[in-house]
Computed example of a mutant assay.
Amino acid sequence: MFRNLRLLKSNYQINKKSKLKTNTIYLIKSRNFSHITSKHKSFNQNYNINNEYFTKNVRNSSILAAISEKSHLIFTKLSESYPVHIAQDFLINFHDTTGLPWWATIIGSTCLLRACVTLPLGAYQQSIVAKLENITDEMRNIEHELKAETALAIKKFNWTKKEAFVVYRRSLKKQWNKLIIRDNCHPFKTTILMWIQIPTWICLSAAIRNLVYMLPNLDVQAQIIFAELQVGGFLWIPNLTIPDNSYIFPFALGLINLLIIEIQLASKLKEQKKIQKYLTNFFRVLTVALVPVACTVPSCLCLYWVTSSTCGLIQNLILLSPKIRYLCRIPATKNNVSHPYQLVWNKLKQRLTFS
């Protein structure tokens, strides 16, 4: 009996050991298999990541290709447009008529256009701005009168506040329109300089670019003009078809444009509103961003930009003079000062000392 029990016990132990062995083998196999599956999963994940990265690169490259193609089409259409053709013919005829070298042609034609077009429009714009300032002051008195009349009407006709406000706003707008018609100073006219100056700047820039790259037609005249531009420079830029390697013109462009912004800001007595501050900062950033662009364009194009900005600076300074404003029939306002240049100089010095 004890012998059978021992045999049973030994068999049980053997079976237990065999089970343990099989379990350990199963665990080892399962671990190996899980390791393989984890490797397979990581491989799949890496494959998916690489595949996504590849597809993203393909999409980005296709987007960049589409953008470059569209920009090329825009520049092509711009160079072949009729206004650019007129500007290009104007430059060529000015050069042929005067017999000046190309650097003097660019400077002379820019100053001529600024004097004949931009300066009169600038004076007209200043006149509209002055008239709007005066009727704004006049509207304050009218506004007080309308408020008093509206308060009486509320008591007399038993109007609600909403009805009274609607009538008040309608009457105020009617009086404002009457003053605008009387002085012929619609606010949209204050943007007339922008609508003329910016397209002119773009067309002349595109026309000079056409002369450098012999566009839109590669004919004998275009090749002759290109050869003249190569030898039509001066001082440190004898070749007008290559960028200014001294970076004198690009940095001069940035400084002149910043000076224009600061002079316009210093010549006003009123404090700027929030939107005006944002616009001023935007133009400052745009001016700084234009400097590296000017470092890469042909020097003849950069010469035009510097000349145009210099003329704009002189124009702003001229229109600050009380005598010039009187000759141009710009109405006087309560914000006018007798010594505007002294005011601008003091404000600029104050700004520089604080910075």
Rank of each mutant, 00 (worst) to 15 (best):
R3Q: 00
R31W: 10
R31P: 09
N50P: 05
N51C: 11
Y53T: 09
F54N: 15
T55M: 14
T55S: 13
T55D: 10
A66Y: 06
K70S: 12
H72M: 13
I74R: 12
T76F: 06
T76R: 11
Q88A: 12
Q88F: 05
F90R: 04
H95C: 03
D96R: 14
T98Q: 05
G99N: 04
G99I: 04
L100R: 02
W102E: 02
I106T: 03
C111F: 06
L112D: 12
C116V: 14
L119R: 03
P120D: 05
Y124S: 05
Q125A: 14
Q126H: 08
Q126I: 02
I128K: 15
E133N: 11
T136H: 10
M139W: 00
R140Y: 03
T150G: 02
K156T: 10
K161C: 03
E163I: 00
L172E: 03
R182M: 08
D183N: 02
D183Q: 08
N184Q: 09
C185D: 01
I192S: 08
L193Y: 03
M194W: 13
W195D: 00
Q197N: 08
C203R: 04
Y213K: 01
G233Q: 07
N239H: 06
I242Q: 10
P243W: 01
F251N: 14
I256Q: 02
N257E: 09
N257V: 04
E262Y: 13
Q264K: 11
S267L: 08
K270N: 12
Q276H: 05
Y278K: 10
V285C: 06
L286G: 03
V288Q: 04
L290V: 12
V291C: 04
A294V: 04
T296W: 07
V297Q: 15
C300D: 14
C302V: 10
N316K: 11
P322A: 00
P322D: 00
P322K: 00
K323P: 07
P331I: 03
Q342L: 12
K349R: 14
F354P: 01
S355H: 07
